[in-house]
Nucleic acid binder design. Structure first.
Length: 266
DNA sequence: AGTAGGACCTGGTGGC
DNA sequence: TGCCACCAGGTCCTAC
């Protein structure tokens, strides 16, 4: 999403802001948000975990979290308005950046990029799993200090950034690890497999432009493709691609969880 | 440190 | 068709 948008909106100036759903903006209050965004030029777009950051001239950064159902759409004003559009940023070339979000779990923030006045939303976030700094060794050291089941730890953004329910289930499956395994009981070889699987899943999913079940789309409203590559997620009852055993659904850490009971033994 | 449960929202789906 | 229960890509909170 960030790469797509970078080529389209960097250099554009935000001429007007329309926010029919005020609670979307967490900080500052909506009037200040609007007055600090209006007239600013987008100089870059970055990503940290599940947050996207639109750097503005003047030193502010407009931060977006899509929540569960949010999408950023780049449209022309004459194109029909989608349902559930929570904010519209009108750009100086006439286009509109629309944030569509059925369930209203998405959030926006306007922060000083320096993070001085207020900590950035990702201030306490763990390492980026696709960065070289995220090594199997460092990952192993983190997990060795934890006794919780591995799945909720992988969903915890302070342990590793950016993983959600889909990619956690997929990574655990690829690594042949049961989601209820206690982190500190994982053998070194298992941590290495998991470390590799996390990177593989994320790279594959990004290459396939994301996973769409109902709401997620790219900036042109196109669905992702990775839902066709999932090995376990949302495949309850279907045959495991590796061994043919029916995929099972269980609840771990309060989240729907999908495993092959044969490939992923407790 | 961990776990369970619920809150926040708006649907879609399947059973009866 | 209606009603109901349950499910859903995330995060945050409280209580234990």
């Amino acid at each position: 999403m960030v790469r797509d948008l970078a080529g389209r909106v960097v250099g554009r100036t935000i001429s007007e802001v329309d926010a029919p759903f005020a609670p979307l903006v967490v900080y500052p209050d909506l009037p200040e948000f609007v007055s600090r965004v209006r007239g600013r030029t987008i100089t870059a777009i970055s990503r940290r975990g599940k947050y996207a950051g639109f750097a503005l001239d003047g030193g502010d950064i407009l931060v977006v979290h899509r929540g569960m159902t949010g999408s950023l759409l780049l449209r022309q004003p004459n194109e029909e308005m989608e349902s559930h559009v929570r904010i519209i940023l009108r750009l100086d070339d006439g286009s509109e950046l629309r944030f569509r979000d059925q369930r209203k779990f998405g959030k926006m923030y306007l922060m000083q990029a320096s993070g001085e006045e207020r900590p950035l939303p990702w201030a306490r976030m763990g390492p980026e799993p696709l960065n070289a700094a995220f090594t199997a060794r460092a990952f192993a050291e983190t997990l060795a200090r934890r006794t919780a089941p591995i799945k909720p730890l992988l969903l915890n953004q302070q342990i590793v950034a950016g993983l959600g329910n889909i990619y956690v289930d997929e990574a655990l499956h690829r690594a042949r690890i049961h989601p209820q395994r206690r982190a500190n009981t994982l053998a070194s070889a298992e941590v290495k497999r998991l470390h590799r699987a996390i990177g593989d899943v994320l790279r594959d999913a990004v290459e396939r432009r994301g996973t769409t079940f109902s709401n997620y789309t790219d900036f042109e409203g196109r669905a992702g493709l990775y839902q066709d590559n999932l090995l376990v997620f949302h495949r309850t009852g279907s045959a495991c691609v590796t061994c043919g055993t029916p995929i099972e659904r269980l609840v771990v850490g309060g989240r729907g969880t999908h495993i092959c009971p044969r490939c992923q033994r407790i």
